[in-house]
Simulated scan of single mutants.
Amino acid sequence: MKVTIINTGGTFNKRYNPIKGQLEVPSDNIALDKIVASCHNVDFEIINIISKDSLDMTDEDRQIICDAVKYSKNENIIIIHGTDTVHLTSALIKKQNIAKKIVFTGAMVPMSIDTVEATMNFSQALGFLSANVENGTYTSMHGVVVDSSKLVKNREIGQFLIQN
Protein backbone atom coordinates (compact mmCIF):
# COMPACT_ATOMS: atom_id res chain seq x y z
CA MET A 1 0.00 0.00 0.00
CA LYS A 2 1.18 3.52 -0.81
CA VAL A 3 0.22 6.39 1.51
CA THR A 4 0.98 10.09 1.40
CA ILE A 5 1.26 11.70 4.82
CA ILE A 6 0.77 15.45 4.84
CA ASN A 7 2.24 16.72 8.09
CA THR A 8 0.91 20.20 8.91
CA GLY A 9 2.05 20.49 12.53
CA GLY A 10 -0.42 20.67 15.38
CA THR A 11 -0.14 19.31 18.90
CA PHE A 12 0.74 15.86 17.50
CA ASN A 13 4.20 17.24 16.62
CA LYS A 14 4.80 19.74 19.44
CA ARG A 15 8.01 19.57 21.47
CA TYR A 16 9.20 21.49 24.50
CA ASN A 17 11.79 24.19 23.82
CA PRO A 18 13.76 24.53 27.07
CA ILE A 19 15.29 27.86 26.02
CA LYS A 20 11.94 29.54 25.37
CA GLY A 21 10.11 27.51 28.02
CA GLN A 22 7.23 26.60 25.73
CA LEU A 23 5.85 23.95 23.41
CA GLU A 24 6.59 24.62 19.75
CA VAL A 25 5.57 23.08 16.44
CA PRO A 26 8.81 22.02 14.75
CA SER A 27 9.26 21.83 10.98
CA ASP A 28 10.51 18.24 11.02
CA ASN A 29 8.95 14.78 11.10
CA ILE A 30 10.49 13.31 14.27
CA ALA A 31 7.12 12.28 15.74
CA LEU A 32 6.04 10.60 12.49
CA ASP A 33 9.42 8.97 11.89
CA LYS A 34 9.04 7.05 15.16
CA ILE A 35 5.69 5.64 14.11
CA VAL A 36 6.40 4.84 10.46
CA ALA A 37 9.62 3.03 11.38
CA SER A 38 7.40 0.15 12.55
CA CYS A 39 5.31 0.00 9.36
CA HIS A 40 7.05 -2.52 7.12
CA ASN A 41 4.34 -3.11 4.52
CA VAL A 42 3.58 0.48 3.59
CA ASP A 43 5.36 2.80 1.17
CA PHE A 44 5.13 6.29 2.69
CA GLU A 45 5.60 9.65 1.06
CA ILE A 46 5.88 12.29 3.81
CA ILE A 47 5.21 15.91 2.89
CA ASN A 48 5.89 18.44 5.62
CA ILE A 49 4.01 21.71 5.08
CA ILE A 50 2.64 24.58 7.17
CA SER A 51 4.22 23.47 10.54
CA LYS A 52 1.78 25.46 12.66
CA ASP A 53 -0.61 25.10 15.51
CA SER A 54 -3.97 24.90 13.76
CA LEU A 55 -5.21 27.99 15.64
CA ASP A 56 -2.60 29.95 13.65
CA MET A 57 -3.63 28.55 10.26
CA THR A 58 -5.04 30.89 7.63
CA ASP A 59 -7.33 30.27 4.67
CA GLU A 60 -4.21 30.35 2.50
CA ASP A 61 -2.67 27.55 4.63
CA ARG A 62 -5.82 25.47 4.20
CA GLN A 63 -5.66 25.94 0.44
CA ILE A 64 -2.01 24.79 0.47
CA ILE A 65 -3.16 21.61 2.23
CA CYS A 66 -5.96 21.12 -0.33
CA ASP A 67 -3.49 21.55 -3.18
CA ALA A 68 -1.10 19.02 -1.62
CA VAL A 69 -3.96 16.50 -1.46
CA LYS A 70 -5.08 17.19 -5.04
CA TYR A 71 -1.59 16.87 -6.51
CA SER A 72 -0.48 13.86 -4.48
CA LYS A 73 0.23 10.87 -6.67
CA ASN A 74 -1.32 8.56 -4.08
CA GLU A 75 -4.99 7.76 -3.55
CA ASN A 76 -4.50 7.17 0.20
CA ILE A 77 -3.80 10.30 2.25
CA ILE A 78 -3.29 10.86 5.98
CA ILE A 79 -3.20 14.47 7.14
CA ILE A 80 -1.64 15.24 10.53
CA HIS A 81 -3.51 18.34 11.67
CA GLY A 82 -4.11 20.32 14.83
CA THR A 83 -7.33 19.40 16.58
CA ASP A 84 -8.67 22.93 17.14
CA THR A 85 -9.45 23.69 13.49
CA VAL A 86 -9.33 20.29 11.79
CA HIS A 87 -13.05 20.68 11.09
CA LEU A 88 -12.38 23.78 8.94
CA THR A 89 -9.71 22.17 6.77
CA SER A 90 -11.60 18.89 6.42
CA ALA A 91 -14.75 20.79 5.39
CA LEU A 92 -12.81 22.67 2.70
CA ILE A 93 -11.37 19.44 1.30
CA LYS A 94 -14.75 17.70 1.48
CA LYS A 95 -16.33 20.59 -0.45
CA GLN A 96 -13.82 20.09 -3.29
CA ASN A 97 -14.91 16.45 -3.87
CA ILE A 98 -11.40 15.09 -4.30
CA ALA A 99 -11.60 11.44 -5.43
CA LYS A 100 -9.20 10.02 -2.82
CA LYS A 101 -9.34 8.44 0.61
CA ILE A 102 -8.35 11.24 2.99
CA VAL A 103 -8.05 10.71 6.74
CA PHE A 104 -7.31 13.56 9.14
CA THR A 105 -5.74 12.75 12.47
CA GLY A 106 -3.90 14.48 15.27
CA ALA A 107 -3.57 14.41 19.03
CA MET A 108 -4.73 16.35 22.05
CA VAL A 109 -1.41 15.65 23.81
CA PRO A 110 1.96 16.03 22.03
CA MET A 111 3.62 12.77 21.04
CA SER A 112 6.78 14.07 22.72
CA ILE A 113 4.92 13.98 26.06
CA ASP A 114 2.81 10.83 25.64
CA THR A 115 3.22 8.56 22.61
CA VAL A 116 0.01 6.59 23.08
CA GLU A 117 -2.73 8.89 21.74
CA ALA A 118 -0.85 10.12 18.64
CA THR A 119 0.33 6.60 17.78
CA MET A 120 -3.16 5.15 18.24
CA ASN A 121 -4.86 7.84 16.15
CA PHE A 122 -2.31 7.49 13.34
CA SER A 123 -2.37 3.68 13.39
CA GLN A 124 -6.15 3.71 13.31
CA ALA A 125 -6.06 6.01 10.24
CA LEU A 126 -3.57 3.72 8.51
CA GLY A 127 -5.62 0.61 9.27
CA PHE A 128 -8.73 2.31 7.95
CA LEU A 129 -7.00 3.09 4.66
CA SER A 130 -5.95 -0.54 4.26
CA ALA A 131 -9.61 -1.63 4.42
CA ASN A 132 -11.95 -1.50 1.45
CA VAL A 133 -13.41 1.98 2.03
CA GLU A 134 -14.95 4.51 -0.32
CA ASN A 135 -13.23 7.71 -1.33
CA GLY A 136 -14.08 10.48 1.08
CA THR A 137 -12.89 12.72 3.87
CA TYR A 138 -12.64 11.09 7.30
CA THR A 139 -11.29 11.87 10.76
CA SER A 140 -9.47 9.37 12.99
CA MET A 141 -9.57 10.27 16.68
CA HIS A 142 -10.18 8.55 20.00
CA GLY A 143 -11.07 5.07 18.78
CA VAL A 144 -13.11 5.81 15.66
CA VAL A 145 -12.72 6.77 12.03
CA VAL A 146 -15.83 8.43 10.63
CA ASP A 147 -16.92 10.96 8.02
CA SER A 148 -15.12 14.17 8.96
CA SER A 149 -18.37 16.09 9.37
CA LYS A 150 -19.55 13.72 12.11
CA LEU A 151 -16.64 13.93 14.58
CA VAL A 152 -16.57 17.05 16.74
CA LYS A 153 -14.13 18.25 19.37
CA ASN A 154 -15.82 18.72 22.73
CA ARG A 155 -13.61 21.30 24.45
CA GLU A 156 -15.32 20.87 27.83
CA ILE A 157 -14.22 17.24 28.20
CA GLY A 158 -11.20 17.33 25.86
CA GLN A 159 -12.40 14.55 23.55
CA PHE A 160 -13.71 14.02 20.04
CA LEU A 161 -17.26 12.72 19.96
CA ILE A 162 -19.50 11.43 17.19
CA GLN A 163 -22.32 13.81 16.42
CA ASN A 164 -25.50 12.50 14.85
Rank of each mutant, 00 (worst) to 15 (best):
1 M>G: 10
2 K>C: 01
2 K>T: 02
2 K>A: 10
4 T>Q: 04
6 I>H: 02
6 I>N: 01
7 N>G: 04
7 N>Y: 00
9 G>W: 01
12 F>Q: 04
15 R>P: 00
16 Y>A: 01
21 G>D: 09
21 G>L: 10
22 Q>T: 11
23 L>R: 11
23 L>T: 03
23 L>N: 13
27 S>Y: 00
28 D>T: 10
28 D>V: 02
28 D>C: 02
29 N>V: 10
30 I>F: 12
33 D>R: 06
35 I>D: 03
35 I>C: 08
38 S>Y: 13
41 N>I: 04
42 V>G: 05
42 V>W: 04
43 D>T: 09
46 I>W: 02
46 I>P: 01
48 N>T: 15
52 K>L: 13
52 K>I: 05
53 D>Q: 06
55 L>M: 12
56 D>Q: 12
58 T>C: 09
58 T>I: 04
59 D>G: 11
59 D>Q: 13
62 R>M: 13
63 Q>A: 08
64 I>N: 12
65 I>E: 00
65 I>C: 00
65 I>V: 14
66 C>I: 02
66 C>G: 00
66 C>L: 15
75 E>F: 03
75 E>Y: 05
75 E>S: 11
76 N>T: 03
77 I>S: 01
78 I>G: 03
79 I>P: 03
79 I>K: 06
79 I>V: 15
79 I>T: 09
80 I>L: 10
82 G>T: 06
84 D>S: 11
85 T>G: 08
85 T>F: 11
86 V>S: 07
87 H>E: 13
87 H>Q: 14
87 H>C: 05
88 L>P: 00
89 T>H: 10
91 A>P: 02
92 L>C: 06
93 I>S: 02
93 I>M: 05
94 K>T: 07
94 K>D: 15
95 K>F: 12
95 K>P: 03
96 Q>F: 05
96 Q>K: 15
97 N>I: 00
98 I>E: 08
100 K>E: 09
102 I>S: 05
102 I>K: 08
103 V>Q: 11
104 F>R: 02
105 T>N: 07
106 G>V: 04
107 A>E: 09
107 A>F: 04
108 M>A: 07
110 P>G: 12
110 P>L: 07
111 M>S: 07
112 S>Q: 02
113 I>P: 00
113 I>D: 09
115 T>Q: 13
115 T>D: 13
116 V>L: 10
116 V>W: 11
118 A>M: 04
118 A>Q: 03
119 T>M: 09
120 M>Y: 14
122 F>L: 12
124 Q>L: 15
125 A>E: 06
126 L>Y: 03
128 F>W: 13
128 F>R: 06
129 L>R: 06
130 S>R: 12
132 N>Y: 08
133 V>G: 04
133 V>K: 14
134 E>H: 12
135 N>M: 00
135 N>D: 13
136 G>P: 07
137 T>K: 01
142 H>D: 15
144 V>F: 14
144 V>K: 15
146 V>M: 10
147 D>A: 09
147 D>Q: 06
147 D>C: 05
148 S>T: 07
150 K>T: 14
150 K>C: 07
151 L>I: 10
153 K>T: 00
153 K>Q: 07
155 R>K: 14
155 R>C: 06
159 Q>I: 11
161 L>G: 00
161 L>P: 02
162 I>T: 13
163 Q>S: 14
163 Q>T: 11
163 Q>H: 11
